[in-house]
């Protein structure tokens, strides 16, 4: 997927840089993009390390197992294959719980762990239906309080600040449901690899 994305982006960019005559800027963006990717990854390393450690503590203490029993009726519907085979159920539970609690920076590392765990039991390098559902839910990430946006609004002197939370909740909630439904339908059409 990423290879194709990069190909498409580079062809389009080259084309537009010629038309707009800003080949110099394109040149700089390649170099600065490469170093920016390091900063982004490093900022993720700290969060990943912390949450994977926490996850393991909770797992060894048996807490995630209890939680996954509790959420089983709902999650079994969303991730049918994983909950049938019992692979990565604890990781999925942890990721979804973090998502629902609105701890967005924990949801990312937990989702990575969950997908790694699901992949470790498989041989093919094609994403399974459950992996895709988890990724789509990650894209519709639920934020209990969108702190960054509210902070920017306050800084710019907005009068409406916290009130944006209601539409945000409704919108992300419906996006999640829509994501689950679309994944279910497409999973049926494409089959589980």
């Amino acid at each position: 997927m990423l290879g194709k994305c990069f190909g498409v982006l580079s062809v389009i960019s080259f084309f537009f840089a010629i038309i707009n005559g800003n080949m110099g800027e394109l040149c700089n963006s390649i170099v600065s993009g490469a170093s920016k990717s390091v900063t982004l990854t490093i900022s993720l390393v700290g969060i990943m390390t912390l949450w994977s450690g926490f996850m393991n503590v909770l797992k060894q203490a048996g807490i995630i197992k209890k939680l996954s029993h509790l959420l089983r009726p709902v999650l079994r519907f969303i991730f049918p294959k994983s909950f049938k085979s019992g692979v990565a159920t604890e990781e999925i539970t942890a990721c979804i719980s973090a998502n629902l609690l609105g701890i967005a920076n924990a949801a990312t590392p937990l989702a990575i762990t969950a997908i790694e765990k699901m992949q470790s039991e498989r041989k093919s390098n094609i994403a399974s239906a459950d992996m895709i559902t988890l990724a789509v839910l990650g894209c519709a990430s639920f934020n209990l309080v969108p702190t960054t946006v509210i902070a920017i609004r306050q800084a710019k002197g907005a009068l409406i600040t916290y009130e944006i939370m209601f539409p945000v909740w409704i919108c992300s909630g419906i996006c999640m449901v829509l994501g689950i439904i679309s994944c279910r339908i497409l999973g049926k059409i494409y089959g589980d690899s």
């Binding site: 580079s10 084309f15 840089a17 993009g33």
Partner: peptide, 16 residues
């Protein structure tokens, strides 16, 4: 990550 960020920054810098 490197491939993605370079691709995206090229896309925005070129005016596309």
């Amino acid at each position: 990550m490197c491939a993605l960020v370079v691709g995206v920054s090229m896309f925005t810098a070129s005016g596309a």
